[in-house]
Structures are given as structure tokens and as C-alpha cells.
């Protein structure tokens, strides 16, 4: 549970623009270090007042209940404190669209949208996502209707093996939510946290351009 004086996920209001809170940043120290940050011992080691956590926010060390709002549904799971949001989604909730690829925020394969921001779910504790609105690739098409980004990916064949595709689609959606008509350079920059190993970027750019109502990049005309 996120307390009202938590400096991180304060209903999303105080989260950085990239959606990383102080506590989720701790994940970059490694899952075990992050787990320690939540343990009683670690809390006790902090200077008083620096990160005053109410007793109720102390978790673990074993599994505890956790309620996440995913794709518009509130779901309660049991998980250890060190469980990343990605592991919670994939292993506890059966949402395997987000992929674990690099496991350290370098590839974008696990991207989800949290309170409107694109987040690498492998770099965030599930506990830190409580109270936030989480959208995974499974939640992007509503009532059987595809998101325009998904439709455009299909049209432009912006996928090959498809393993990176959920991450790219989410990155494209998050970009268009913030910037409805991005330039090609802006698209490249916005996607630069994602890696595709088959090499499909060209078609991804075109898909996002067209999903935003702009023409794709043309190849040289015949006979040019």
C-alpha cells in the first residue's frame, strides 16, 4: 500500500515525468537491494525523518497480499516484497504480453503504461505500483477493438518474431498520448529505450507515423 506521505507514487502526482519514483529507482540497485529497502531492518537503518514509513507499509519477508489495478480491473495477488511488477504481471496474473528480455531496463520489452507514463515494469516493484492505473498490452485493445497503433503495426508489418512488439506498441501508444503528431526524429527518440533484434525499426516508424495521421517515409520513386 502506498501511504499519503510517500514521496513516490503519490497517486501519480509527484512521480517524475518518466514515471520513476524514488522507491522504484531503488530497483536499479538490484532486486535484492530493493527488497532490503523495504525490509524492517533497512527501514530502521534509515535516518529518522528521511523516509518515514508507517508501520503498515512494511512488507515481508514472505509473501503478502498486494492489490494492483491492471487494465481497469483490481486484482489481489500474493507476492514477496522483492517481486517486480513484471514478475507479478507475468507469473502471478498470467499477463505474458510484457516480456522479460534484459531484466534491467535496457530493452523496453516489458514496457507498460502507468498513470499515462511509459515504465519498464522490470525496474519497478509490484508493491510500488499499488494504487496506480496500469495498462499492459493486453489492455490496449478494448472490447475487441484494436488500438490504431496496433492496427498500423499490422498494416506496415512492424514486427517479425514479435517478442519486442508489445513493448514497441506500448511505447508508440505512450508517445502519441503525449504528442499526437510526432516527427520522425521524435519517434526515434521516444522509441530509443526499445530494442528489436530482428530489425524492424523502419516499419515501426512508418506504423507510428501513420497511426498519428501522417504519411509514412517514402522510398525513392521508381526510376529515380
Amino acid at each position: 500500500m502506498v501511504s499519503s506521505n510517500d514521496p513516490g507514487w503519490n497517486n501519480g502526482k509527484d512521480a517524475g515525468k518518466d514515471g520513476v519514483s524514488r522507491r522504484s529507482f531503488m530497483v536499479t540497485l538490484g532486486a535484492s537491494a530493493a527488497a532490503a529497502s523495504l525490509s524492517q531492518a533497512a527501514q530502521a537503518a534509515l535516518p529518522k525523518g528521511q523516509d518515514a514509513q508507517p508501520e503498515s507499509d512494511v512488507r515481508g519477508p514472505g509473501e503478502t497480499s498486494l492489490t494492483l489495478n491492471v487494465n481497469g480491473q483490481s486484482r489481489t495477488i500474493k507476492a514477496e516484497p522483492a517481486t517486480t511488477l513484471l514478475d507479478a504481471l507475468r507469473q502471478k496474473m498470467g499477463l505474458t504480453g510484457p516480456k522479460e528480455i534484459c531484466d534491467r531496463g535496457a530493452c523496453g520489452g516489458c514496457s507498460v503504461i502507468i498513470n499515462g507514463n511509459l515504465v519498464a515494469s522490470c525496474m519497478m516493484l509490484a508493491a510500488d505500483a499499488e494504487g496506480a492505473a496500469i495498462t499492459t498490452i493486453e489492455g490496449l485493445s478494448k472490447d475487441g477493438a484494436l488500438d490504431p497503433v496496433q492496427e498500423s503495426f499490422i498494416r506496415h508489418d512492424a514486427l517479425q518474431c514479435g517478442y519486442c512488439t508489445p513493448g514497441f506498441v506500448m511505447a508508440g501508444r505512450a508517445l502519441l498520448d503525449k504528442k499526437p503528431k510526432p516527427t520522425l526524429a521524435e519517434i526515434k527518440k521516444a522509441l530509443s529505450g526499445n530494442i528489436c533484434r530482428c530489425g524492424t525499426y523502419t516499419n515501426v516508424f512508418n506504423a507510428i507515423l501513420e497511426a498519428s495521421g501522417q504519411p509514412p517515409v517514402m522510398d525513392s520513386a521508381p526510376g529515380a
Binding site: 499492459t136 498490452i137 493486453e138 496496433q150 499490422i154 514486427l159 509514412p216
Partner: peptide
């Protein structure tokens, strides 16, 4: 699902406009 950005390749294949059969599964996480 026709695309127009590669005019040079138009008409070069049995199917110019076919989309990948498993694309829906791949873009929806299914």
C-alpha cells in the same frame, strides 16, 4: 492492407498487400 510507401516494389509479389497472419496475436500480446 495496402501500403504505398514502397512504390518500387509494388506488384513484385504474389501478394502485395497481405498482412502477417499472426500479426494480431503479436500486437495484442496473445
Amino acid at each position: 492492407m495496402p501500403t504505398t510507401n514502397r512504390p518500387r516494389n509494388a506488384g513484385s509479389a504474389i501478394s502485395d498487400d497481405a498482412s502477417r497472419l499472426d500479426a494480431v496475436a503479436k500486437v495484442t500480446g496473445q
